[in-house]
Amino acid sequence: MSDYLKETPSQTAGPFVHIGLAPGAAGFDIYDQELGGDIAGPNAAGERIRVEGLVIDGIGSPVKDVLLEAWQANAAGVYAHPESAGDVEDGFRGFGRVITDFDTGEWAFDTVKPGPVAGRSGSVQAPHINLWIVARGINVGLNTRIYFEDEVAANAADPVINLIEWEKRRATLLAKRSERDGQVVYRFDVCLQGDNETVFFDI
């Protein structure tokens, strides 16, 4: 069929992505509200968690000009979207947008832990947060998934994790759980390249 259009090709988000998508971080105040600042809202059920990490380049250095976007279901496994069966709590958006700190490269967002969601062919996917990563030097945004290391049984049955031929690489998708000052924290470092290169997906 020759009448299909071609997808607009990607170009890097560049070093100044903050101007467009997080202008407060670029150093100026322009919008009444920036988008993606509150993933779960005040009414969402489930466990409140923080997810944090670094994005690390092939040299082993933190990358300090990254923008990350999160897309997740609520604790009942429902996405805030008409093609996901069920309803979400009032104020639950499921979308988050964060940048890495200009000095340390650390990023973090607060949310609720998602529930398992339906997979293909009647399967069930373990709880996960979909992540999209853009930065200077990344020509096409990178997709990965944050899974939770304590979901041992669900992860073992997850059809996407099991698609990864190399069992050693599956661990790159598991966020590590700890508690800090009474807050549940999951650590998820992304390696763009190198021995522990994170699994990235073509979705």
């Binding site: 092939g58 990864i164 763009l192 699994v199 997906f201």
Partner: peptide
């Protein structure tokens, strides 16, 4: 792009609700 490009192939996923 040299130090920020994944070396391994992307894992191709069939679409799910995610």
């Amino acid at each position: 792009s040299v130090a920020r490009s994944p070396k391994y192939s992307l894992i191709s996923l069939e679409n799910t609700v995610s």
